[in-house]
Write a protein that binds this DNA or RNA. Structure first.
Lengths: 135, 135
DNA sequence: CCAACCTATGTGTATTGTACACATATATAC
DNA sequence: GTATATATGTGTACAATACACATAGGTTGG
């Protein structure tokens, strides 16, 4: 394999940087601002990295979130056009969001550690032995 | 569901904040510092959020990375104790790492946007209509 | 000497978050 | 009345990681 450029193999899987469980918090955060519904949420989640969000994934996630009690929904039919399932964040949802944000902070520290090491300066020499440097 | 505290349901799945594809870059970054092997890498990946890394997952990932050409390995037997499969990062591996780090920067912006919104100040009022605030 | 233990690598299978493909229904515009 | 935008949904696939378990070499101590 050649160096310097990425092989077709690697390009294919592109690099996807996004935390797992990113979708749920993003939805919750958005709903904390305004009540909303699936179709609209799709646009807004794009701002957080879900650029080509698949509708099915979003709708299913919303249903699951309702089962989990972090959101509630009811149909909104008083309007032209197809009915919308309007979602509201629950108290449990806000609690979950807070919990998640806290965890995100911890992760940010991990990411910073990554960058410190990446950008050159080795954090420390706390490795007991490093005899396998070269052979 | 009660608010303020997390339900058993939510506690069970804990909040796992870590980007997808985090393991591979962490391994590559570590190998860029020193050549290493699975057993040792387990300790080091812990520093980046893989606190209870399962051996199987790590070893399988390393093999896959070798197939992808981002690392190379050879047995090290000149030592007491079980043989170690020593890994070295390849040029392609370094290129991949660079590529990934760049993508990570973009994600960091998403995360910052999340925090700005989370910590109160609404980014903007660029939403066309928000009639569903209350009903 | 052989049993217990640490080191070290591995396989088989499950889980989970999201992706992809596709289906359906309601209104409005032409 | 059919095309289009809006809106919600199901079935299935996939990839990253988790979990459970197996194996084998070497060292230590009774």
């Amino acid at each position: 394999m050649e160096a310097g450029v990425l092989s077709k193999e690697e390009k294919k899987r592109e690099v996807e940087v996004r935390p797992r469980n990113w979708l749920v918090p993003v939805i919750l955060l958005t709903l904390r601002e305004w009540n909303s519904y699936g179709y609209e949420l799709m646009e807004r989640t794009a701002a957080f990295g879900f650029e080509a969000m698949n509708p099915g994934t979003l709708y299913r996630t919303l249903r699951q979130m309702e089962k989990d009690g972090v959101v509630e929904s009811k149909w909104e039919t008083s309007r032209g056009g197809p009915a919308r399932r309007m979602y509201t964040i629950t108290d449990a949802g806000e609690a979950y969001l807070d919990f998640w944000a806290e965890a995100l902070e911890q992760y940010r520290r991990n990411m910073d550690a990554f960058f410190r090491l990446y950008t050159g300066r080795p954090l420390m020499n706390n490795k007991n032995d490093k005899e396998e440097e070269n052979e």
